[in-house]
Amino acid sequence: MLSIRRVVKSFDSRPGGSVPVLAGIDLDIASGEFFCLLGGSGCGKTTLLNILAGFEAPSAGEISLDGAAINGAGPDRVVFFQNADAALFPWLTAEENVAFGLRIKGMGEAACAPIAEQWLRLVGLWEHRGKFPQQLSGGMKQRIQIARGLAIDPAMLLMDEPFAALDAITRRLMHAELLRIWSATSKTVVFVTHDVAEAVILADRIGVMTRGPSARIKAVIPVELPRPRDPGHPRFAEAYGRIEALLMPEAQA
């Protein structure tokens, strides 16, 4: 259980001032749950994810994972950054990037190879294993980043709009693949998106954020549709409409 209690975050601005980004976030995310954080751009989704990752400390409030306070980042919570280009290591090949987390743990090359191969095949990039990130398209880079994070088998995935830059078809395939991996393992996923349809396709529950500054969780909506979810289904449209209606007043004028 990931428990977020009254989390406040403000950033210092010019002399004396401070920008309140998050104003009291309360959430409980169950182990094994697929949770989507949904909100307009600039509302503070990445800020909250950075706090969950342990990259930044909240200005106030508490976060604990299974009862233990989070301080600092660790391999039990892997972040998938929106910008895969910046997150990959450009001097390592696709395969070496995927193996990075394993090598760092002290695992030998021979032991890493089959694991890296498994994840490279799963994201469909085994043929491109020898290429460097600069030689891959944006979508391929994102898939390498996903393979790299999954290779170390983290208990929790913190995903920051990972598919925002993919074309629609690739995104659908990645959704299906992510859901398959998630249901086959018992991983907790916190998935940030600004895309209502993406949230409805993926989530067990959707936390809808108010617009910033001083963002809060406006509502937590369970999505009780069987998977795989069909965006053409009337019940999908109904859930979509309900969430969009919550989000609409939060759009920046």
């Binding site: 997150a87 290591f89 760092i104 980043q145």
Partner: peptide, 17 residues
């Protein structure tokens, strides 16, 4: 790039690594 540092951190790299 800070994201590069953060990425390695949450993949389990120590300060020295």
């Amino acid at each position: 790039p800070p994201i590069r540092l953060r990425a390695s951190e949450c993949l389990g790299a120590t300060r020295l690594q």
